[in-house]
Every structure is written in C-alpha cells, then in structure tokens.
Design a binder for these strands. Structure first.
Lengths: 342, 342
DNA sequence: TACAACGATGTTAGCGCTAACATGATAGCG
DNA sequence: CGCTATCATGTTAGCGCTAACATCGTTGTA
C-alpha cells in the first residue's frame, strides 16, 4: 500500500519543503515562485507578496544546489591562498569577503599550504562547484593548473603581486618594495646588510623583495648576503638575529622578509641589550600594527591589503555583471614607514 | 537543420565533458563511470583503469553540483565564526580545515561580524547548499537561528565555549578561565584590579571571563570594576591603560580580555616608563606568541585552539561516517602561563 | 479595427549526476 | 544439478530548480 501517489522510486531525503510546494501554497506555478524570489521585478507585486508569505509560512529554504545545476551558475567565488597562518592573507580575504558577500556571493576558501599540486586539486574541486570566478594569491602555478585556468572561461583574478597575469591582476611590485627598503638602508648609511627570509621557495614574493634589495646594493658595489630560515614567526626572527650576529659579526643592518621575523628579532635584541639601530638596524615588511608599538618603532613597508581584496572583488563583480573592467592590472602600491629601528 | 540529434531546447553552457562522455569513451555506462570515481571498490580494476584513462584524456572535471543534487549530500562543512580579524578564530579554522580537507570535505566559511542576524542568513545559505554539517563558534544564537538548527538533522558542532549545546560541543570554560587568572592575581597580592575588555556584547566570552574574575574578587571581599572599550587591538590596549590610570589611579593590576589589548598596554607602559609589574601588573588571555616575546613576558592563559578545531572536526567526521561519538561535549581546558608581567 | 508590443504567467524539458532496482555472469555448496 | 550468494554492470527515474519557449490578456498605435 502506498501512502503516496507514486512511491516507486522516491528518494527525497529531507522533508524540507520545495519550491513546488511553495508555489502550490501560493497558487502559482513553480517558475513564478522562482521568479518571485530571484527576479522580483518580473512578477506582479501582489503575486510576489503571496509567494513570500508562503515561503515564510512553510519555512522554505531554497535548494541552491538545484538552482546552480539548472542555471549552470553558482554564486561561489573560489579564493585560494597559500596559508592562513599569515595575517597578510587574512586581511586580503577580509576585503574580498566583505565585498563579495555584500553582492550575494559566497566565498569558497582554499588553502594550498604553499603546495602548487594542492592548488591544482583545489581549483579542480572549485571548478566542479561551478564557481563564478577564481581568485588566487600569486601568479605562479604548476603546468596542470595553468592548463585548467587557460581552458576556463570564468574571470580569474590573481592578487598580491603584479606581473603577467592570465586575466585580472591586483597587487604590488615586490621587487620594487625590496629596492625601496634597500635604498632607505643605504641612505641611512648601512653598508653591511643581510637579508633574512624564511622558506623562500614557498614565499617566493619575499624572494622577489630580496632580488630588489640585492640589485640596489650591488649597484652600490656592495654585497647583499641572504640568510634563509627554516621557519617563520617571532621565534625564528629571534633565532635569525643570533645566527646573523654569529655568521656575519660585522653586519650593521638586517632586512627581514616580514614584520614577524623583524619584530621577533627586535624584541630579542632588546633582551640581549643590543642597541637598535646603533649596533644593529632592523627593517621588516608588511606594516603590521605590532611593529608600530614596539620601541624603537619598526621601519617597514605597508601595503593596502584590505583594499587589495576590495579592489579585486570589485573588479571581478564588474566582470561578472558584464561591465567593462577599467584596468585589468591594478598596482595598489606600498608605503615606506620609517620607524626608529633603522 | 539541426547539426545535433535534438537541439530543440539545448542549454549546455560550457563545453566541459560530462560523465556520460567519459563513460562512452571508456565503453561503459554512466553509472559505472560514476562508481569508478566515487566507489572504486565496486568496479573491476580494469574497468576502473579504462575510466580513469578516459577522465585523464578528456580532462573531465566532475560536476559536484549535479552530484550533490542527485545524492542530496554535499561534502561541504559550514563553518561560521564571528570575525576573521581575531587570530583566535583563524587558528580554530586551521585545525578544522586541515582535518576536514584530509577527509575530502570542503569548508564553507562564513563571517558573522558578531551579528546574530547575519549568522541566521549564513546558516540559511549554507543549508541551501546541503552542507553535511555545521560548525559554529559559540552557543548563542537568535530565535530564528535556533529554530533552523533544531529542524535540521545534520551534525551541529558548537566550538569555543562549553555549555548547553544543541548537539556536539568542543570548547573551554571561560568563566573558569576568568577565575583562574583572578586567583593568580590575588595570589600575587593584587587587591585593586580592573578588568578591561572591548565590545563585550559581541565578545560575550570575554564577558564570561569577567564574571569569573569578579566572582573571585568579590569572594575575597574586593570590588572588580570593569572598563569596556569601543575597539580592540594594540592601540586600544594602550588607550585602555591610559584611561585606567586616569580613572582608577590606585589600580595595581589590569586583567585584559585578550593578549592584543594586554600587549598594547604593556608596550605602552614601557614607553611611559611605568614599571611592569611593580607599578602596574598586566595579564592577558589567549597565549599569543607575541606575549612571550615582550619584556616582561606576559602572564596569560593559553587554550589549545588548533587542537580544538581538530577535535571538533574529528567528532563531526565520526558522526558523518555513522560512528558513535565518544563525548558529545569535550573540554579542551586551558593553561595559565605565568610570565613576568604580574 | 487590426496588429504589434509588452507584461505576467505557464508548460516543457532538461542541468549532470546518482539511488534504487534489475540483470546476468560466476562461484560455492550440499 | 539446482539453489543461493556474490560481484560487476546496466536501466530507469528522478534530485529541485531554471532556461527557453509559449500563451494570454491588455495597451498603444497607425
């Protein structure tokens, strides 16, 4: 005995009401109910009111999966970053999220852990979710990933750095940032300097800053040695300072790849009783708040990371809405914050 | 003239190959191809090899939207946090993400900005995506949200704090943490103390810590005034210190709601030439690395946030796989880190 | 008055995949 | 040898929604 019209092969799992039920309750067809919810201007105001009332009464929650399948569009934006441990990416994500969510897009966040193969897998997954657009941190991808991106007609936004982007690009010139800090150190009279970074294979943008740094010092006829650490963070910065003093006793300034390292070193110098910048000058990158609170204030470079996220999202949204994007490439620039540590 | 069998109402948008095409290329039916990809043990090894070869050759990317609709299951886990600006949530998210992604689940991240109405909207959206489970930070939700959660048969995990959870719960007792620090301050001989927090309506867990703090001091016959700031962060901590000294000149110790505020205050005290802890003792909460790098080291409470995420994810996964979850409620505890600032 | 133009709504046919059931071949066993 | 159990694969019928086309009344216009 079937208690239903045709229970031959039913498999509705949840008892959630469907759009059809809402439509029946409102006395309209399913498509009208759909339009009432998604294209309000295409239905009569009274009809819409009845549909909304039925939605409310039945506690209808639209099945977005079905909607995406039918329309071949989801309102997902894939966002792929190499790390969540680094606050830099968090700030960009925040800018992206605020802007996208305000327009009704949902972010799908992927974390590659600096692994390009994982990036490929993530992009595959996200494409499988018919995401509307892709935002990735960085311009470097592996072969498979480049193929996937090339064969995909969705907007692709590459953020953080500037360069030969596939499609849209919002970022800053890291090589130039490295040059900028190097020039500052030179101006301050530092001749014996060291660049300290961590895991530069992954954080290749730090490597680019080192290249800029080296360029300037070599132009001045000076060497610019590099010290690469196994890990990042405050502890690593402190350890890096120790190693620097041991391996390069005559060093006068250290250009750190980021503020975490630099702050760790600066606070450690305090503990060691080393005068900063007299005995050793310290510079960072990122312009994190902590750098402006330590004494002496850290010399660093600040980039508009939140704005970078907003600008990137805005450009993607314009593209998705079929509008022209004014600039495919946008340099957000950076700002040298001269503190008292150099 | 149709160049296709029946182009009456075609609307395939992308030219992405479908599972059917893969199946044809491999000489099997669609369902076999599906099984080859999703239930490898249910198909013959050779058949599977042929399917995988076809997948590779055609560059097939599974349409996860269609799969989810058909199976009424997605591999999404909704994760809802009140803020991304606070590194505390980031660490929990990292723990969640690592664990979930390792099991093939994708995180859908929502940010409520401490707004319970936004939380409701996010949960609606995520349910619309047929997420497999929901992880939310905190036990407080608004009426609509509670209804939604009550009528939803998916695993629900509430993290960060312990209490009357709807389903699963992993967290720590914030009231007890507040008591713990208060006892420490009492032991150190501090009688005139002040609790400083920011935006406690949103960060109600800080409010719970204050309640614990007050309880202990009132039991000792002492008052425990509260100073609430408009904003958080290092700057706010510095400003809070100034206000505390102005409004409570006889104060000997400040219990800050978190390490950001405490560190800001501690570094500002340095600049002001105030001896910490002799003139003013400072305590925080969270156990952030920076607190262990400043001089004097910050007294604080560390909670295992990364582990909290891992444990939460593990429990949810067990539930999803139909296994029994040993403990519906799990207290991850906390640890008093006695520094030199108290 | 006839006809186009438009607005509001409905009908039909999928989107690409998988659950449920069906089938057929092979193995195991008394 | 007939029976059931098991494995590998196929057929059918949706999942819940929306695109595309169709319909029907109402207006405006020559």
């Amino acid at each position: 005995m079937s208690n239903d019209a045709h229970n031959s092969r039913r498999r509705r799992s949840t008892e959630q009401p469907t759009l059809k039920q809402v439509a029946d309750a409102a006395g309209v067809s399913a498509i009208t109910a759909s339009r009432a919810l998604n294209r309000p201007d295409q239905v009569n105001e009274l009809t819409r009111a009845r549909v909304l009332e039925a939605v409310e009464r039945l506690g209808y929650v639209p099945n977005l999966v079905a909607g995406s399948l039918a329309s071949a569009r989801s309102r997902f934006i894939a966002v792929i970053v190499p790390s969540l441990a680094n606050s830099v990416f968090i700030e960009v994500i925040q800018g992206l999220q605020e802007t996208f969510e305000a327009q009704g897009y949902q972010i799908l966040l992927g974390n590659t852990e600096y692994d390009l193969e994982r990036e490929y897998q993530l992009i595959r997954t996200f494409l499988g979710w018919s995401c509307s657009a892709l935002v990735t941190a960085g311009l470097r991808h592996n072969e498979a990933c480049r193929t996937l991106l090339a064969n995909c007609d969705k907007p692709i936004m590459e953020v953080m750095e500037l360069g030969e982007a596939r499609d849209l690009n919002v970022g800053l010139d890291h090589t130039e940032a490295g040059r900028c800090m190097a020039r500052h150190l030179l101006e301050r009279g530092h001749r014996q300097t060291l660049f300290i970074g961590a895991r530069l294979a992954g954080d290749y943008r730090a490597g680019m800053r080192y290249e800029g740094h080296r360029e300037i010092f070599e132009q001045a006829g000076l060497t610019a040695p590099l010290l690469e650490l196994e890990r990042g963070g405050l502890d690593a910065g402190a350890a890096g300072l120790e190693r620097a003093l041991a391996e390069h006793p005559d060093i006068g300034a250290i250009h750190f790849a980021n503020d975490d390292l630099a702050t760790g070193a600066l606070l450690h110098a305090q503990r060691l009783g080393l005068a900063v910048p007299q005995r050793i000058a310290i510079a960072g990158f990122n312009g994190l708040p902590i750098g402006q609170h330590v004494t002496p204030r850290l010399t660093t470079i600040r980039s508009p990371r939140h704005a970078m996220g907003e600008l990137a999202a805005t450009a993607v949204i314009r593209r998705l809405e079929g509008q022209r994007v004014a600039r495919r490439q946008h340099d957000v620039g950076f700002e040298l914050l001269v503190g008292d540590s150099t």
